[in-house]
């Protein structure tokens, strides 16, 4: 193994690790705000990547139908709720806007010549398609059971994931998809060739993390989300409704997922069911961070990326085994740090 290979593998590890770090961040955000372990996080990634790939290869984009259908169901659920309360509950704002966005995106995917609108427009349209999926999933599947036991939330989360993977097969077919890189340039730094895609991933990750930092530190809504995570009752008493916090965190999760998908699509071939494996590595990062510490989770995710890259080189067929077995020492460490018996909520 020479320096060049080390640099190459390291590069792979950094790009993948950066994406895992983003996903870890998103998973922890949703978990701390809603207590839901967002297993379908990976579907945002896979759906985004496959939608981009479908656009570029000139195949029909079907995701709009799913989003539109969910928006219709969500609107009906809202209507039923208002009707049942005999007009005492106001019409919840938000869902109608999502319905409009979903309808518009659906129409656009059907009328635009998708393979000729350019990568930037393709990415924008993908974002418009996938991001509404976040709040819609929350509205349709989780809002009514938001107060349930966390085990119930986990099972519903897995069930939604299973249903989405099946839908993904229906929409995208069993073939994998890969997109054009954002640019083809390579930079030579010392003995190493740095692919510009790597730099794109790193830059986009840093920009997104910076954006999230500003959002949580400086904006009222960001602080409101943080407040919900810190003290649910306190947040509700100052008027931050759990529904709002849930929808907002799912929106962010979908946004992070779609960006990860667009970033990773030129590097790896993505299949309709690849999302889970990718997001699971985010979960491993999140568990390293104890589901609470963002920086530790991000470092953990970077480490997972490296471990994966180097095990590809040494024992490529055991790659996934090695990556997921790495979780065991983390759990051992957590278990040793944990001494007293506790009651679950």
């Amino acid at each position: 193994m020479n320096m060049q290979i080390v640099m190459l593998l390291g590069q792979d590890g950094v790009t993948n690790g950066a994406v895992y770090a983003l996903l870890a961040l998103s998973i922890m955000l949703v978990f701390s705000v809603t207590r839901i372990l967002l297993i379908p996080q990976g579907e945002f990634v896979a759906f985004a990547a496959l939608t981009m790939a479908a656009m570029q290869s000139g195949r029909a984009v079907q995701l709009g139908w799913l989003v539109f259908a969910l928006a219709v169901v969500a609107t009906l659920m809202d209507a039923a709720k208002v009707w049942r309360s005999k007009g005492r509950e106001p019409w919840p704002h938000g869902t109608l806007g999502l319905l409009a966005v979903a309808a518009l995106a659906l129409v656009l995917t059907k009328v635009l010549p998708l393979d000729r609108i350019g990568m930037f427009a393709q990415a924008l349209l993908t974002i418009a398609l996938v991001v509404p999926l976040g709040p819609l999933l929350y509205r349709v599947f989780f809002q009514a059971i938001a107060a349930a036991h966390s085990l119930v939330l986990l099972i519903v989360s897995i069930a939604v994931h299973v249903a989405l993977v099946g839908t993904g097969l229906l929409m995208f077919g069993p073939e994998g998809g890969k997109t054009e890189p954002f640019s083809d340039a390579f930079f030579e730094i010392g003995p190493a060739m740095i692919a510009s895609q790597t730099l794109w991933v790193i830059a986009a990750t840093l920009a997104l993390m910076g954006g999230l930092w500003v959002f949580f530190g400086k904006t009222l809504y960001g602080r409101a989300l943080q407040a919900t995570a810190v003290n649910r009752l306190g947040a509700e008493l100052v008027g931050i409704s759990p529904d709002l916090a849930g929808r907002a965190s799912f929106t962010l999760a979908a946004a992070i997922g779609v960006l990860s998908g667009i970033l990773i699509a030129p590097i790896t071939t993505i299949y309709y069911d690849s999302g889970f494996i990718i997001s699971l590595k985010g979960f491993v990062g999140a568990i390293i961070g104890g589901l609470t510490s963002f920086p530790v989770a991000a470092l953990g995710a970077l480490f997972i990326g490296q471990a994966e890259a180097f095990s590809t080189f040494w024992a490529s067929s055991y790659k996934e085994v090695i990556v997921f077995t790495l979780l065991l020492p983390v759990l051992v460490w957590r278990s040793l740090a944990h001494t007293r018996v506790e009651d679950e909520e």
Partner: peptide, 14 residues
Amino acid sequence: ALFATMTVEDNLVL
């Protein structure tokens, strides 16, 4: 029910 890990000012603003 304060937001213990946030600043006094953030608590008030919220």
